[in-house]
């Protein structure tokens, strides 16, 4: 049984979606050119066409795979280096300038390096996703390690608990909220970086489709792919939110 307030919010959200569509229609009518700013109807028509020809799901999956791979690599390297950084203040300071620099380098700057290394293909986008996510994950994991409750560590000392047990029961648990929060923030970045990278140096995926559509000045196609990208990005974030809530509720935190 939904409360009155929740119902009200849902009503306004639905109205908001309609409002969004109305703005879209309005702007497209004002510009009055399908080439510059197509309206919702032509975009959705194009979208259905793409679904039918299979030109939507295949690129979508390809982008998803590359983005996920980049994320997994960033998690792997980030966890290990984050742990070392969190445990050793010297290592932390050593790595900090590099990590901060990596965090600030714009994606376009990776272009020349990536193209010369791997040319056009899947490795470039995967690498770009990886390098975009790595610094944040590293810093968050390091922070998680540094914030471990020293009182729990004292308990481990008194009872002579093995280092492995301490790592598993105390450190991992302390790090998890930080890790989850960094993934939460990174999902949007992951998705958008993958698409931008594909646009620049990719050979398949949503980014490439958008690039080709733009090249052929098929603006409804561009919009159709963009809508797809937006919906997918939001869905991924939503799914992860659910996962996060699930994890927290099982741990009763």
């Amino acid at each position: 049984m939904k409360t009155f307030l929740q119902n009200r919010k849902r009503v306004f959200f639905a109205l908001g979606l309609i409002f969004f569509l109305l703005c879209w229609v309005l702007i497209s009518k004002l510009i009055a050119s399908d080439l510059i700013f197509p309206g919702p109807i032509s975009v959705f028509r194009k979208l259905i066409e793409l679904v039918r020809t299979g030109e939507l799901f295949v690129p979508l999956m390809k982008t998803f795979v590359k983005a996920s791979l980049g994320m997994l690599l960033a998690l792997g390297v980030g966890l290990v280096s984050g742990f070392i950084m969190g445990s050793s203040p010297y290592f932390y300071e050593l790595v900090k300038p590099l990590a901060m620099a990596l965090r600030s380098v714009p994606i376009v700057s990776w272009l020349s390096t990536v193209i010369l290394l791997w040319g056009i293909g899947w490795k470039g986008p995967t690498f770009i996703v990886f390098i975009s996510l790595l610094p944040l994950i590293m810093f968050n994991v390091a922070e998680g390690v540094r914030s471990v409750d020293s009182k729990l560590l004292e308990v481990a000392r008194v009872y002579e608990v093995s280092k492995w047990r301490v790592f598993k029961d105390v450190y991992l648990g302390s790090v998890l909220p930080f890790l989850l929060s960094s993934i939460d923030v990174s999902i949007g970045v992951m998705w958008k970086s993958a698409i931008v990278a594909e646009y620049l140096v990719g050979d398949s995926g949503l980014g490439v489709q958008i690039s080709w559509s733009k090249f052929y000045i098929n603006t409804p196609r561009v919009f159709a792919y963009t809508i797809t990208a937006v919906v997918c990005g939001l869905t991924l974030e939503g799914v992860f939110s659910l996962v996060q809530r699930r994890v927290y509720s099982t741990w009763r935190m």
Binding site: K151, L152, E154, V155, A156, V158, Y159, V161, R165, D169, V170, G173, L176, W251, R252, M253
Partner: peptide, 23 residues
Amino acid sequence: LGYVFQEDRLIPWRTVVENLLFV
């Protein structure tokens, strides 16, 4: 040695049994 601390110092994300399995 057994040490009963002033604060319970239990691992919050572990159950009662798991807290004992810790030692």
